[in-house]
């Protein structure tokens, strides 16, 4: 077991930042119509492509990745369990059910109204999950993610049934499987709210670290436990709802990234939050680029690529933990 891990140096930070920048530029360049980056400034058509499609798509991937990784980190903190994330514990499914219902009842509602309803549904669904998770015996850490998977499955089944009855199954699959190909200028800007949520998480970072020590330690240190729980829930729900409504859910980002960062750097959120956000952004960008290249010129949705990559990481985490239990 690793006893002491040196804190990330300035160099590690620079290299990571450079890596993220390379992915960002690659994401701008890769696509069905070629975009030679050296000609962008002189070619108005290329400029148009960049501004309308490639740049929004890349920003959306960065925002979704960073946001969902932070949402996962916060959910793991609030439930004091490393194996939960919005996609596997009912948050995403509740958001999907919410947007499905608002689409059925008020089909003409604006995107932000739908996002708001999805966010509200995600908040309710996640609150119920956490309230139940806190009652499960802490000696059995796998009960919480198992319960989350069953719980999310039940809500997802309700959504599927409702969508089937209303002949909206195609819509549902848009929300359940993340995809960036439809992201255009004017259709993704709400996602910047996810960046705002990450900023809120940064402000309360120390409190989040203390929350992970448990209710009694938090109260002993003067933290308003119930209030922090609410703030955390709002961050998780808003980010998840935004992702579901605008690009569709991307699984495993919220699970894999915080766990890997925790392994390497520990759980002091003030120190790790930036790494988790950057890691999530990089992972989603990389998966999206891979999805665009694997069957070029066709695309594989990022949710599918991430399902394969993240699933493998999840299994690795589970078996690793079992090894020294």
């Amino acid at each position: 077991m690793i006893s002491a891990v040196s804190k990330p140096s300035l160099w590690t930070g620079l290299i990571a930042g450079l890596g993220l920048a390379v992915l960002f530029v690659l994401s701008l360049a890769v696509g069905v119509s070629p975009l030679p980056l050296n000609k962008v400034l002189s070619d108005p058509e290329a400029m148009q492509l960049l501004a309308v499609s490639r740049l929004p798509r890349t920003f959306a991937a960065v925002l979704c990745g960073a946001g969902l990784a932070i949402a996962g980190l916060i959910m793991q903190t609030l439930s004091r369990n490393r194996f939960v994330e919005p996609a596997t514990a009912g948050t995403a499914q509740s958001a999907e059910l919410g947007i499905l219902l608002v689409t059925l009842l008020f089909p003409a509602a604006a995107l932000w109204v739908k996002t708001l309803v999805a966010g509200g549904a995600a908040l309710v669904g996640t609150s119920v999950f956490l309230a139940t998770a806190h009652r499960l015996p802490p000696q059995q850490p796998f009960l919480v993610p198992l319960f989350g998977i069953v719980y999310g499955g039940v809500i997802g089944a309700v959504a599927t049934f409702a969508a089937w009855q209303a002949d909206l199954l195609q819509f549902l699959s848009v929300w359940t499987n993340g995809e960036f190909s439809g992201v255009l200028r004017g259709r993704y800007e709400l996602l910047w709210i996810a960046a705002l949520m990450v900023a809120v998480a940064w402000i309360v970072a120390d409190r989040l670290t203390i929350m992970a020590l448990g209710r009694e330690a938090s109260i002993g240190l003067g933290i308003d436990y119930a209030r922090m729980m609410q703030i955390g829930l709002v961050i998780v729900s808003v980010i998840t709802a935004l992702a579901v409504v605008i690009v569709g859910m991307i699984p495993f980002v919220g699970l894999a990234v915080p766990n890997i960062v925790s392994r390497l750097m520990g759980d002091n959120v003030r120190g790790t939050l930036g790494w988790v956000a950057a890691g999530g952004a990089g992972l989603v960008l990389a998966c999206d680029i891979a999805g665009r290249l694997l069957r070029y010129p066709y695309e594989i949705p990022v949710g599918t690529v991430m399902g394969v990559v993240g699933g493998a990481v999840f299994l690795w985490l589970l078996f690793r933990r079992g090894g020294h239990g």
């Binding site: 004091r80 020590l213 448990g214 330690a217 925790s262 392994r263 520990g266 759980d267 002091n268």
Partner: peptide, 10 residues
């Protein structure tokens, strides 16, 4: 408290 368990990697 008695039996405080720290699950965080701090």
């Amino acid at each position: 408290r008695q039996d405080t368990t720290i699950a965080s990697r701090l």
